[in-house]
Design a protein around this nucleic acid. Structure first.
Lengths: 210, 210
DNA sequence: TTTGACAACTTAACAGTGTTAAGTATATTT
DNA sequence: AAATATACTTAACACTGTTAAGTTGTCAAA
């Protein structure tokens, strides 16, 4: 069935072309400019053709959001070589801040916009795999810190929520312009890192009961 | 000039009617359903009339965002009677979480959506007064904690950023559905409070050097 | 009193959005 | 050769924010 295979490949090619076009619009003009009509223009098909390959726009944005997680994984790839879990935790936070501030559009898609989560809800297996995996790594590192008595023991889930919350909070306040009028532009990034370091320090202090 | 006064009053009345209609749409149907045409329908004027009273939609949303800050102030009104600044800090955090989760639409407008900040940029005095005031209270409390040696001394600005970041992060991840697939629905709010309590505990521990 | 100006408001339109129903070719199967 | 299935398009619906131009009605000066 060589002909059926070729047809299947062509279908997958067009699907990929749609995602590539979406990606191009996304990185060059931001998520607000990813519209079905603009995608259609780029791939030189009619807008309705897009709907033969994706249920709706949310589904396209969900795919871009996944690419964002891949990109983020590149940022944090080397932290897992760090033996000391507390140092690793610190570096994870630093890379998280770095990724968010250097890729605000991707960050938006991954952690702020509703669209990808709305797409998720329509799926059969509606787990948020990307988020679950990222949170998992955080939890593991926190657990390791506790096992090695580097930090005081406690509810890993709650602590992970709080730490993730802190870095996410700072990034999202920054990229949604809530720091603009409150902090000088040059001091923003160093100050965010200082905030993170502060947390890691009090955390460290809480563990040293020896 | 009684007649000029009456005219001025009528203008202000219509301005208020537009805001009231916006508010009604906002609380009943969410910010996505606040459109110029729907506002116009409610006040029974043509859509273009709205533009005689507000520069654009952002300016209307900015006004609603201010109302949100008033509402938030009601939540936190009684914390300032608390003498112990560390206890006060804890309660401020608790009320912040409570407000955000009970008023997700307002929270969105105040801390997530770009629209009010875009309006701000067009103003003459483009300070974010509401945000500045709220952050100020947080900073004061942190400073007081340091002055009384309840927490280790450090950069107040950075620490305020981190603490605000944490509560904002948790609220915004929650209302933008990032916890949905990761944490059981019933455990979400208690877990967020647990995360906050955890931070306050390690903070407390960091201060007890006596 | 008539004219002119100004204020308040509306109509109509522009340029865009996501999405769907219905139609048209082309290619495959019966 | 006829029927069917595939891939795609046209045209439309129902919205969105926003603006240019036109229409009233009121008021002050000629």
């Amino acid at each position: 069935m060589g002909i059926a295979e070729r047809k299947e490949k062509q279908k997958q090619d067009l699907r990929k072309a749609i995602l590539d076009a979406s990606m191009k619009l996304f990185v060059e003009q931001g998520y607000e400019n990813v519209s079905i009509r603009k995608i259609a223009d780029l791939i030189e098909y009619s807008p309705t053709t897009v709907y033969l390959y994706f249920k709706d726009k949310n589904e396209i944005l969900f795919n871009l959001h996944e690419i964002g997680f891949q990109k983020m994984a590149e940022y944090t790839a080397d932290v897992f070589t760090i033996k000391n879990p507390l140092v690793r935790l610190h570096k994870m936070g630093e890379y998280y801040l770095k990724f968010g501030l250097e890729n605000p559009e991707f960050y938006d898609l991954m952690f702020i916009l509703q669209a990808p989560m709305e797409a998720l809800q329509t799926f059969d297996n509606c787990e948020w795999k990307s988020g679950d995996q990222a949170l998992g790594k955080l939890k593991e590192t926190i657990q390791e810190c506790m096992d090695k008595n580097l930090v005081e023991k406690g509810d890993v889930g709650a602590i992970a929520m709080a730490i993730w919350g802190m870095v996410h909070g700072m990034v999202s306040l920054a990229i949604r312009n809530r720091f603009d009028k409150l902090v000088q532009r040059e001091q923003m990034v160093p100050m965010m890192n200082k905030g993170l370091t502060w947390l890691l320090n009090v955390l460290d202090a809480s563990g040293n009961k020896t």
